[in-house]
Write a protein that binds this DNA or RNA. Structure first.
Length: 593
RNA sequence: GCGCCCGUAGCUCAAUUGGAUAGAGCACUAGACUACGGAUCUGGGGGCUGGGAGUUCGAAUCUCUCCGGGCGCACCA
């Protein structure tokens, strides 16, 4: 039971349409919508049915709309139905229709708005997937929030969701991490060795100089003493310590990342290790499987267009026929030294997700990985069994007091996610990020997000919810908890809810299920934030009516029946706000402090 | 040079995916607190949706073309 009044109305419109214009093709009917009009003057619901049908039926849209309107003339829940504009059908509902809606919301609770759109199909949302080479910083934050909210949204819209984190623990980066950790280990052993001196003795240079590895060095010292050092307290041969230190450091970084994510309210269902994938042989097996399927050949790529890299030279490589699946060029799966590329492992990884049952794969990535999507899409499409989508998160410019903050991971001068959370709090971080479409660049001004003003939508929305709860608490003292049970409120006589001020609230609430579906389909969780903001605005307006005119307050001691009706509205409002905040991962606070 | 993303009020962003008169906040401006917490509310000014052409009943949205910003362009991950 979805209680989607727009879906219900659409079914009725289609029914009427079938009588007015017999023999309509399915494809045409599918384009018929019933939506909330932007203009309140256009009624509570509007349908484009006549406009869609007019051309195939070779009839005047106004005439069709008028015929549709006539079909709704005697409906007990419809106050008026009329043709308008070029051929819209505008419906205005009777209060009783809104009262039915309210009862539906109260009975459904936070499941109001749940949809069956996803039909239980398994979707795998991969997000964050930061390299385990350092703490989470602000750059990771957007993907974490967007991915998490998207996963929640898809869950509400009827998909079976797996939240997954891919640990890139197999490449050169983690080797560099091991060297950096070893440097800190030497320092923990009491050896004086500067970054410059160590850098000169490190194969690929000392890449991670941030002091976040100091505790890792100390922990290594605590566990291994001086046993990892070379004979004369120098750097021991890498074979003797690299794997040990690397695995130790990765584990430490992942612990920290998990803790950082938890502080942001992000929890993944599955953590997959690239290294395990490679060591299990699954990655190599994948290449063979693709070779058997004729997806692979040995060849030489054309030089890239434009200015050539200085070290470019033609090379014989193992290539995937990505161009056959829509990519611009074929992509290498093996480097010239024969080892697998990141891409090759990633294909095996995505195949693993498909094998686990996922029908839809969604990767939430930073915009700098935008060029990577076509080849991954090509690979998934070649393998088959699931569809692939990428959600790109554009760069976040972090400002403080209007000034941009520069950061560099290697120099260790970055703002960690933890710092940000300590200053701003997870609710404000999550909400603020979700007030922008993910593929638009955004400025994140720390001062503005910390400010508890109207400019900051998270407080505005939370305040609306807190006000709802405040009313309900006051009512509980007056009437007792039993009177506020959803079923009791749903059973109340709601007929007093008829004034114009309450209508926007009803309308908004009625649009929630549709919004959930649309946002899920478009993979755009930010729409939830805007919806909640509007919903909060409606409620604040109602509240203030009561301040100007005492008879419009929610609690009317002398009129218990009206009070119950208004409490039903307040309770339903709180339910919808909570339901939306839950998708966003923002806490619905009981009171502001 | 090629590909992807973006361009909407002075600023930060929306616009139910092709719907009717393009909306919010900030800033500017004029108002409302003996309250169920004013962290709120009411009103006003502010737009050739970067420019131009096309598609149709209808375009911020789709197509083409310029202009301006961001990102990415072999064996990095």
């Amino acid at each position: 039971m979805t209680h989607d009044i727009f879906a219900a109305a659409r079914a009725r419109v289609l029914e009427a349409l079938a009588r007015v214009v017999p023999g309509l093709p399915e494809a045409v009917a599918a384009r018929v919508e019933v939506t909330l009009p932007r203009e309140a003057g256009h009624g509570d619901m509007a349908s484009n049915a006549a406009l869609i049908v007019a051309k195939p039926a070779r009839r005047n849209p106004r005439e069709i709309a008028a015929a549709l309107a006539a079909a709704f003339a005697d409906d007990p829940l419809i106050a008026s139905a009329e043709a308008a504009g070029p051929g819209f059908l505008n419906l205005r509902l009777r209060p009783a229709a809104w009262h039915d809606l309210l009862r539906g919301v109260l009975r459904a609770g936070e499941s109001y708005g749940d949809s069956t759109l996803g039909q239980g199909a398994t979707v795998n949302v991969e997000y964050v997937s930061a390299n385990p080479t350092g703490p989470m910083h602000i750059g990771h934050c957007r993907g974490a929030v967007v991915g998490d909210a998207l996963a929640n949204l898809l869950g509400k819209a009827g998909w079976k969701v797996t939240k997954e984190y891919y640990i890139n623990d197999a490449g050169n980066q983690v080797a560099a991490l091991a060297w950096a950790a070893y440097w800190r280990y030497m320092q923990a052993c009491g050896l004086e060795i500067s970054a410059e001196a160590f850098d000169a003795q490190t194969p690929n240079g000392l890449q991670y100089r941030g002091d976040y590895l100091v505790p890792v060095g100390e922990a290594l010292h605590a566990k291994f003493g001086r046993s990892l050092l070379g004979p004369d307290d120098g750097i021991a041969p890498a074979e003797s310590w690299l794997v040990t230190v690397r695995d130790f450091a990765i584990a430490a970084m992942m612990d920290q990342i998990r803790a950082d994510l938890a502080a942001l309210g992000v929890h993944h269902d599955v953590f997959s290790s690239e290294r395990k994938l490679v060591e299990s042989g699954a990655a190599a097996a994948m290449i063979e499987r693709m070779r058997d399927a004729g997806l692979i050949y040995e060849g030489v790529l054309e030089p890239p267009k434009g200015k050539l890299p200085e070290d470019w030279e033609p090379r014989q490589q193992t290539l995937f026929r990505a161009t056959a699946y829509g990519d611009d060029v074929d992509r290498p799966l093996r480097k010239s030294d024969g080892t697998a590329t990141y891409f090759a492992n990633d294909i095996a990884y995505h195949a693993q997700k498909i094998a686990a049952g996922a029908k839809v794969l969604i990767d939430v990535l930073g915009a700098d990985h935008g060029g990577y999507l076509p080849r991954m899409r090509a690979a998934v499409s070649a393998i088959g069994g699931a569809s692939f989508e990428g959600v790109l998160c554009q760069i976040v410019h972090v400002l403080k007091g209007g000034q941009p903050l520069k950061m560099s991971k290697r120099a260790g001068t970055f703002i960690t996610l933890r710092d940000l959370l300590d200053e701003v709090g997870p609710d404000a971080v999550r909400f603020t990020i979700l007030t922008r479409k993910s593929d638009a660049q955004m400025d994140f001004d720390i001062d503005a997000v910390v400010a508890q003003t109207r400019e900051n939508p998270v407080f505005y929305v939370q305040y609306a919810h807190a006000r709802c709860r405040s009313v309900l608490r006051a009512a509980e003292e007056q009437f007792g908890a039993a009177a506020l049970a959803p079923e009791t409120l749903a059973g109340a006589d709601l007929s007093s809810l008829t004034n114009d001020q309450e209508e926007p609230q009803h309308r908004r609430m009625g649009g929630w299920p549709r919004l959930v579906e649309a946002a899920a389909q478009a993979r755009e969780p930010h729409r939830i934030a805007f919806f909640l903001y509007d919903m909060a605005a409606d409620f604040h307006m109602l509240w203030n009516r009561g301040r100007d005119d005492a008879t419009l307050r929610f609690l009317q001691t002398d009129h218990p029946e009206e009070t119950r009706a208004r409490l039903a509205l307040v309770a339903a409002t709180a339910i919808v706000i909570r339901s939306g905040l839950r998708v966003m991962g923002v806490s619905p606070v009981e009171e502001m402090r």
